[in-house]
Amino acid sequence: MTLPLRIKAPLIFFPALLLSWECAVWLAGAAKIMPYPSGVALAAIRDIADGTLIDAIAGSLRRVITGFAVAALLGVPLGLLMGLVEPVRRALDPIVDSLRAIAPIAWIPLALLWLGIRGNAALFIVAYAAFFPFVLNTIQAVRLIDRKLVDAARALGASPLLVLRAVVVPGAVPTVMTGARIAMAFAWGSIIAAEMAIGIKVNPGGAATVGLGQLMVSTLYVKRDINGLVLYMLSIGLVSLAIDHGVRAFQRKATPWQR
């Protein structure tokens, strides 16, 4: 046993934790009111086999991606404008700041009213959440561009257009990408919140499970399946891990000059 501590300790601790948790639940006869590892595993097999889980994840992801794209399409140009034109930035900064301080989910009643329950309200919340990281990071990106690089390009004979294309844009990409990563995380967090809020509000007993959030609500109030809830929770974590890895991998590919 010469494994390093960083591997050995968790290798002993976590299985022991799961095992004692399982035993404790059964010994206490609390399997009806407490989640337990084997129950979660069974729920996973059940929900993966009948497609419930995959469908719900796909439903949520679809809206996340659409909302994310809308946020990028609106946020990046606004960020460019604010980053390049100082008076515009100074005027809009406090407004952006105060709108950003409104938790996206707070808009849900109005979003429901304006866009309806069939997914578009959730889309609005997602886009709202993802919008601000794009704006803020694009502003940062433009402001951080090294003046010397612009000068260097001009001294080498670059036209303004070439400066924009070959210096400003690649110079801004890494910071905007970081914004995209944050935006993606926000988007995923808020789709769940939005779907849950919609699920509770609109269809407490219904079966319209179009996303993970709604699935959780119906599992909570209709099926009352705690192990299922834990499974969905873990799935949310896994998906957000996968998203973050995906975005990072893309980022590395797209900006190979970054160390």
């Binding site: 300790a9 968790p10 769940i192 919140a193 849950m196 929770m233 873990l234």
Partner: peptide, 25 residues
């Protein structure tokens, strides 16, 4: 560190919002 760090890394991607139903239970 060897125990807490991986535990936090595992829990972190599960955003707070995912805990709402369990918290309600």
């Amino acid at each position: 560190d060897a125990i807490v760090d991986p535990a936090m890394e595992l829990l972190r991607p599960i955003g707070a919002i995912a805990w709402i139903p369990i918290a309600i239970v």
